[in-house]
């Protein structure tokens, strides 16, 4: 059994993987076999189908969530109760307030900008000859890890003094325009905006794909009617396209907002949260694993949770509304 816990060569690892999968398949086969035995009461069958998933969810989501909420009222080593000290710290400490402000910037800018770009692009390439290719190009960043995307953009932002040959594309453009080169990731608030640009770059493809599908679903007669009324392209976009896809817009905005709140990879691998760029998801990691302020870390995690809730509630209410209208 040691072997299953401590594989070090590549072959061993692959063997462990296969064993793990077979083990899982075996256990599941046994569970289903027992579930199907004659005379098995109905509730037992339900338990066999539902039990494994629910057990894991209870162990891995419900219990930890409660535990973390409790931890947020405890000292750094989680030994003593400290009341609301951690929350006071998060809302009053100047560097923490910067973190909250940055998070607000992220969660406002990423959904709106990436949805706007995705929508404009979806409308522009809709039913053109290159539609498929054009959409794949913008969609592709969704397949790239955020660490990979961060490296791609860190290279674009790479800094060299203006007197030397440039290696970063963004600074090369500044040089071509006759401007001085910039340290894009050094000065707040600009560095936060340049990090936000990376998330927009990743999420726009998602927005474009969902919105494009819903643009294609607009009934033809609505478009015809607007055409007959002599609507211009811009008018058409504003008065026909956007209202018709409103439910999809809401879904995209809220989904991107939720993803943005939880994103940690970009800040972690581009600046490590230095130069005033940290956001709640990243600060959680630093406080918990780097500086061992586990109470504050738990508080930040809870805060993340609390911030997601209103977005989800809004999303669900909008979905209900649009279902009633139908």
């Amino acid at each position: 059994m040691d072997y299953l816990l401590g594989a070090d060569s590549s072959t061993q690892k692959l063997v462990v993987m296969v064993v793990a999968i077979l083990l899982f398949v075996g256990v599941m086969a046994l569970v289903l076999f027992v579930a199907e035995l004659p005379k098995m009461p109905r509730w037992a069958t339900v338990v066999f189908f539902l039990g494994p998933a629910l057990l894991l969810i209870a162990f891995g989501l419900v219990y930890p969530a409660i535990n973390t909420v409790l931890s947020s009222f405890k000292s750094p080593n989680l030994q003593e109760w400290v009341g609301t000290d951690n929350y006071v710290e998060v809302f009053t400490n100047p560097s923490m307030r910067r973190v909250l402000l940055n998070t607000l910037l992220w969660v406002l800018l990423v959904p709106t900008v990436s949805t706007a770009i995705g929508l404009v692009y979806a409308v522009l390439v809709d039913r053109t000859r290159f539609e498929k290719l054009a959409k794949t190009l913008v969609f592709l960043p969704m397949a790239i890890s955020m660490v990979g995307a961060s490296i791609i953009w860190k290279f674009v932002y790479d800094f060299k003094p203006a007197s030397r040959p440039q290696t970063g594309l963004a600074n090369q453009f500044l040089v071509w325009l006759g401007l001085d080169t910039q340290q894009f990731l050094l000065n707040w608030p600009w560095n936060t905006l340049f990090l936000i640009a990376v998330m927009v770059w990743i999420q726009a493809g998602f927005a474009m794909t969902v919105l494009s599908a819903s643009i294609k679903a607009i009934p033809d007669d609505i478009i015809e009617a607007a055409k007959l009324d002599g609507a211009s392209n811009f008018r058409m976009f504003r008065s026909v396209t956007v209202p018709s896809i409103r439910p999809a817009l809401v879904v995209v905005l809220t989904t991107v907002a939720m993803a943005t709140l939880k994103v940690f990879d970009i800040v972690y691998s581009m600046t490590g949260g230095n130069f005033g760029t940290s956001i709640v998801a990243n600060e959680f990691y630093i406080q918990t694993f780097r500086t061992a302020q586990r109470g504050v870390g738990a508080t930040l995690a809870v805060l993340l949770f609390v911030m997601v809730v209103p977005i989800v509630v809004y999303n669900v209410r909008q979905m209900k509304l649009s279902e009633e209208q139908r």
């Binding site: 299953l4 816990l5 709140l261 939880k262 998801a281 990691y285 918990t288 995690a301 949770f305």
Partner: peptide
């Protein structure tokens, strides 16, 4: 909607108790 950040420390503590840390499990 539970952000995975909320779950990390309690899960890590459990894995530690079970001696699983350092493996793929």
């Amino acid at each position: 909607i539970v952000p995975i950040q909320v779950t990390l420390i309690p899960l890590l503590t459990q894995y530690n108790n079970w001696g699983l840390v350092g493996s793929f499990w």
